[in-house]
Design a protein around this nucleic acid. Structure first.
Lengths: 140, 140
DNA sequence: CCAATTTGTAACATACACTGTTACTTAATT
DNA sequence: AATTAAGTAACAGTGTATGTTACAAATTGG
């Protein structure tokens, strides 16, 4: 459903930081392991910093490092930081016809459905920590 | 996450059919209540017919009607019919660097995460029937 | 059989979002 | 002061979605 890969990139970046020697990596190193452009990484870092998941440092020897231990960072936090709220499907782009009883309230009903599903996914993601991901990476 | 509104349109269309007088409506009538183009509706009808959720009829007096009672159609069936499998986030578009242990197995780990979340959403949607949606529409 | 109607389908237009890229500014270290 | 790296703006290229027109295929009723 989410067409973008920002969440995948973000988990990759944070895992790499968790596993790096001194805990810090710059955008060029991160871009290399993710296989993308450093600017794409820096844009991601801004969102992750905004969510208090990492800190950045300019200048020589700068880069990014985790703001908290990996066990205290959940996939739900990461997802929200880079992709906003959980949205499982697109809404009506045009307003449905109000003349029909379906058109009048379909959006409200679908919002309820989307909300329940989003809660379900959020719980699932909240139960998985970055440390869990790192552990799995090491066992592969 | 799903950027497209095919699921919303599909639920709308099927609800309208469930609530229609004689159980049948043509693509023009459906397009009017959804507020889109009849061809968009007909493309949707093809997928819903393929999934055995409705039947279509050409020629004068033709149109679409439900293939089963609304209580026997779940939102999970509708979702799969028009949007394919549940996919909660996009994967790496480019292959991550295999030199780093994160790059080597991040895709596998993320697949596992996506699978668990997808199961969770599917269960949620499977528990809601078209009849439930119609009931909510009538109470609004 | 003929005319009207409606689905089925191809082709294209338009809009939008996302990734990637270049180039430059700002800040921090030595 | 020079170097390094993040921050940021602007734009290119790609892909996907909705919407639209036009026509083919099938079905019904007279």
């Amino acid at each position: 459903m989410a067409q973008n890969c920002r969440f995948a990139f973000a988990v990759h970046v944070l895992s790499a930081l968790a596993l790096s020697e001194d805990g810090a990596m710059n955008s060029e190193q991160l871009a290399e392991t993710v296989n993308t452009n450093p600017v794409v990484i820096r844009r991601l870092l801004l969102d992750l910093r905004e969510a208090d998941l990492l800190v950045t440092q300019r200048g020589p020897g700068g880069g990014a490092k985790l703001a908290h231990p990996a066990a205290q960072i959940s996939l739900a936090q990461i997802f929200k930081a880079v992709s906003g709220e959980f949205q499982l499907f697109g809404e009506h782009p045009n307003e449905p016809a109000k003349a029909c009883c379906v058109g009048r309230s379909i959006k409200t009903v679908l919002e309820g459905v989307a909300h329940k599903a989003a809660q379900c996914v959020e719980q699932e993601y909240a139960a998985i920590s970055l440390a869990d991901v790192v552990k799995q990476l090491q066992n592969n």
